[in-house]
Amino acid sequence: MRRRASLVLLALAVFCTALSPLLRWYAFPQLAKVPAGQYQTAVLEAKDATLIDYATLQPRQVPKVTTVQTLKGNVEQARKVKDATGRDVVVWDTLSYVAGPDGAMVSQIPERYVFDAHTQQPVHAGGEHVDGTPVRRDGIQYKWPFLVEKRDYRYFDPMTRTSAPIHYRGTRTFHGLKVYYFEQTIPWTKVPLPRQLPLGITPDAVRQLGLERWYATRRMFWVDPTTGAPVNGEEIHREEMRWTGHPEKKPIPAFSGHVKMRPDYVDSTVALVASQRRLVLLLTSYLPWGFLTLGGCLLALSLLLEARDRRAPAAHVAHDGGKPERPTPSAGSLSRGGSP
């Protein structure tokens, strides 16, 4: 009986011990992926910002400019790309809607971002665009890969529509979470005008006035290293309208402000990331270490039972001098409860 128990324990010990590396290095890379149907919003605000008035083409100080960013996973499109490429992909349709202090639209830029659900690397399957212009992304955008490394990454800038390094600048604590801080600086670069501008103005009309749009930014992200999700983002963003072919003419500031995530969105993002973080840690740490420890304990118990099982008959044999047990008449009477 003891022997059978030790064999069962041995089987369970091997089961648990084998599960540990299998979960960490086989199951995790396949199971950890960005959900195809994710829907997320973020609101960012720039207080006391400078904003161009397109009616007068003059800059003015405004109390607040708000950017509403929506990410929406397109599951049907992701399935089509998967059928075509054989890769697990996520298709995000996004909209960056910028509103002035009165809530009126300042600009809105739609995007489509297609990327590998496991690695977050862009997948070029057609349909990628920024503001209707096809782009070919290189590097990440919006989210880092799972298990972020302390190194620089390439990050896609939707304004210039090119990728540039985003530098790892150290580890910080943000709202109780240990996060990696990244920074990207984009120098003054000529960028296209958004297709949707206020007052029905078209990009062509602005160009006919002899103006072109330039932009520079310093982008900062606080990223949870386990999930790769940013828990906070800020940008020191500047835009100017410059006179085409007239560098001597003074540019018109179009926007200048320190864009920060609204505090209620910071809180909700931190809560969301903390819950997702636990799921990732379950597969990368809690379960592998738990199963390994359990496997070790079960193996020790199995060996203990096996050793006892072997020792018991040996001790019995040593006690009676190694002769086989034989019933005697007196022993028989004692067992029956008789007395002399």
């Binding site: 084998a18 199951a27 959900p35 149907g37 599951v75 639209m105």
Partner: peptide, 28 residues
Amino acid sequence: ALALVLTLTAVGPPEGVTSPEPLLSSVP
């Protein structure tokens, strides 16, 4: 152990559906 892990990865997480929520053009 192998059978369990292979089954888990073969089934995979649910795909989900496209959210009916719109891309926002107003400040929530």
